[in-house]
Structures are given as C-alpha cells and as structure tokens.
Amino acid sequence: MPEPAALHENAVVADAHNDLLMLCARHPAGRQAEYFRRVWLPQLRAGGVDIQVLPVFLEPEFRPEGALRQTLRMIETAWRVEAGNRDAVRMCRTGEDVRETLAEGRIALVLALEGCEAVGLDVGLFETLHRLGVRMASFTHFGRTMLADGSAEDATGSRLTGAGVEAVAACEELGILLDLSHLGATSTDHLLEIATRPLVASHSSAFAVRPHHRNLTDARLRALADAGGVVGINVLAPFVDERDHTVSRVADHLDHAASLIGVTHVGLGPDFIKEVSDSLLRADQHSWDDRAVREFVPGLEGPAGLPRITAELLRRGWPEPDVRQVLGLSFHDLFVKELGVPGSAR
C-alpha cells in the first residue's frame, strides 16, 4: 500500500467549496491579503490543496437590497488576496490558467457564486460577473432567488424560473460552470434536463448514504455523470450522517458515489465552515445563529485534515490512481476542459 502522506503530498488536490472568502471580506481592505496569508494559506498547504474554489456567499443581512454591493465587495476581496499573495496563489479564469498555476507550484483560485441574489432578473449581469472572474455559479442557497428555489424549499416543487432558464443559456455561452448543489430537487431535475454542458455539484453528498435534502439521489448522481459532470463530496457532519460523524462515514459517501458513477465523476467539496460558523457565533449574528453549524467530523474541521481522507481510502483498499482521481484530478480535468471556454468555441 502506498504511504498515505507521500501520496497526498504529490497528488493534485482540489477543494470545490471553502467559504474562507467570507472571513477574508470581514477584514479591512488593507488587511485581507495578510489575513489570508496568516490564517488560510498555512491550512491550504497543510491539506495539500492545489485548486481552491472560492464561493461568494451572502449573509442574510445583505439580501436582497445589498446583494450586488456585497457580491462586488467579495469579488474584490478575492482579487486583493491574490494581489498580496502572488507568490502562492493565482486567480484562474481558464483551464490553461489552472494548468500553468499548478506547474508553478501555486494554488489555483476559482471564483464562484453561491446564490445569485446579485443578479435578480438581470441575466445580463452574468457577463459583467464573468469579466470580474466568476467561473462557477449556483443559482440559490437554501432559499429562493429569482432564478430558482433552494433545497429547503423542496415542498414548492418548483422548476427553474423563466429567468433561470435564460441564465443557464447565458452561463453556458460564457463558460461559467453551473453548480446544482443547493438547488431544490425539481429545479435540479430541470437543470439536468436542459443543460448542454457539464455541470458540477460542488458540495453535495449521497442521499442513499445519508437521506438529507442537501444530498443527491442515485438518479441525480447518474444524470450528473451522464452530463460529464463531477460531484464534490461534502464533509459537513449533518450531511454525512445523522449521528456517525467520522472520516469513515465520509469515505462511505465516496465509496457509494464512485461505485455508482465512476471515480472520474467524483471529487471533494468539503464545505469547511467551522471557522466561519465560530466567527458568526462570536459576533452574535442572530440572523445566522439558528443555522450555524455546531457539529463537525473530528479531524475534518478544515483543509489540514484532508490527508485523513487519503489515508482512509487507502486503508479500504482503493487503488492509488482512484485515490488521486477523487482527490483532485476529476475537478482538475473538468476545469482544464471547460473553465471559461465560450459555448461558441466548443
């Protein structure tokens, strides 16, 4: 069996969802890059992260009136982080950017929208957001936007709105990858029906292992794979299991997804938010208080814990190429092929 630490160290590791940008944006503009370098860069390096997707998530107090303003603030924060850490990270707009950045030994940052409150009904804003570096987008979070309903609104049985259908076409033409994590069940099926390019589920796990509205059924996992997409398995305790919050249980989700749709369609979307959640509770953010996550998989509270997943998969007898695939090659290959490529160029 390969030595887990050595395998992990020289593997490509991609994290499709870490809300660290939320905390960077809470600092004064002149200190954001330094905060990232001091707090997050060591964690990413300890976890061997080579590709980091940075979601732009809006806290409730910015919705809806301040959505566009806060989205622009967070996008600017991402560019400030890059400007102050160019020796270590690079914002990537294309697959070639990703390839070059990894070859230089830097971390490739990919900017994403987690919810599109900033867009409203003005689908043309995706072109502006694309110019600013956005390369992934999920239309909603748990609730409702003007494009779609989130999974906490499953009882509505809603498909994508008319503007949501227009947004699919706009994003596909621009080369913005569409993310179905957080979409409601019916909206997910609608997106899978009409998409003409590969999709991602940046941070979702397997419903068959843990029945939760945030996880994907086998039928939806198969449809995602049939469309050429990748699911990033989420490690947040509530989505892993009702009670058994262990690395082994996370590996059960990876086992299930890989056996169902193949390792080339499976990756990691850990959703590391412990520091975010702790910060919100310390700041007494009442609008978040009831939703702040208080339970985490021990050892997987942050990026530094990612080698534990490698060790567990090897312990289970996974072949080394399969481990490398889910650690990062699945998302790497999809990004290299699709990121920023306009529909007219395909």
Score class of each variant (00 low, 15 high):
Val250Ser: 00
Leu260Phe: 12
Val276Tyr: 10
Asp278Cys: 07
Asp241Ala: 10
Asp252Trp: 07
Ala201Leu: 05
Ser204Glu: 13
Asp244Ser: 01
His213Leu: 05
Asp255Met: 04
Val230Gln: 11
Leu268Cys: 11
His245Asp: 01
Val250Cys: 01
Val200Arg: 08
Ala227Glu: 10
Arg214Trp: 11
Ser204Ala: 13
Ala227Asn: 14
Gly229Thr: 07
Ile233Asp: 02
Asn234Phe: 09
Arg210Lys: 09
Ile261Ser: 09
Ile233Thr: 03
Ala223Met: 14
Val266Phe: 10
Thr246Cys: 03
His265Asn: 06
Ile233Met: 02
Ser248Glu: 12
Gly269Gln: 10
His256Thr: 03
Pro270Phe: 11
Gly267Ser: 11
Val235Leu: 08
His203Arg: 09
Asn234Thr: 08
Leu268Arg: 07
Asp252Gln: 14
Val230Leu: 11
Arg214Gly: 14
His212Thr: 01
Val266Met: 05
His265Ile: 02
Thr217Glu: 13
Val200Pro: 15
Ala208Arg: 11
Phe239Pro: 06
Val266Tyr: 04
Ser259Trp: 06
His256Ala: 03
His265Gly: 04
Gly262Met: 13
Asp226Asn: 09
Thr246Tyr: 01
Asn234Leu: 06
Ala251Leu: 08
Ala206His: 00
Ala257Tyr: 13
Val250Arg: 00
Asp255Asn: 12
Asp241Asn: 00
Thr217Asn: 03
Ala208Cys: 11
Gly262Lys: 06
Leu254Met: 03
Val235Cys: 12
Ser248Asp: 15
Gly229Gln: 03
Val230Tyr: 15
Thr246Gly: 04
Asp252Glu: 14
His213Lys: 02
Phe207Ser: 02
Ala251Phe: 01
Leu224Glu: 15
Gly267Asp: 10
Asp278Pro: 05
His265Arg: 02
Asp226Gln: 13
Ala227Gly: 15
His213Cys: 09
Val240Trp: 03
Val200Glu: 13
Glu242Ser: 02
Gly262Ala: 11
Phe207Gly: 00
Ala251Ser: 12
Arg249Asp: 01
Ser279Asp: 15
Ser205Gln: 08
Val240Ala: 02
Asn234Lys: 05
Ala257Lys: 11
Leu224Asp: 15
Leu216Pro: 15
Ala225Gly: 09
Val250Gly: 00
Ser277Glu: 13
Arg243Ile: 01
Val263Thr: 08
Ser205Arg: 04
Asn234His: 11
Pro211Trp: 00
His212Lys: 02
Asp244Val: 00
Phe239Met: 09
Ser204Ile: 08
Lys274Ile: 12
Ala251Cys: 14
Val266Gly: 06
His253Ala: 01
Gly269Pro: 08
Val247Glu: 06
Ile273His: 09
Ser202Glu: 14
Gly229Met: 04
Glu275Val: 07
Pro238Cys: 08
Val240Arg: 01
Phe272Val: 13
Ala258Val: 15
Pro270Arg: 11
Gly269Trp: 06
Ser277His: 13
Ala208Ile: 10
Asp255Pro: 04
His203Lys: 08
Gly228Glu: 15
Phe272Arg: 08
Val235Lys: 04
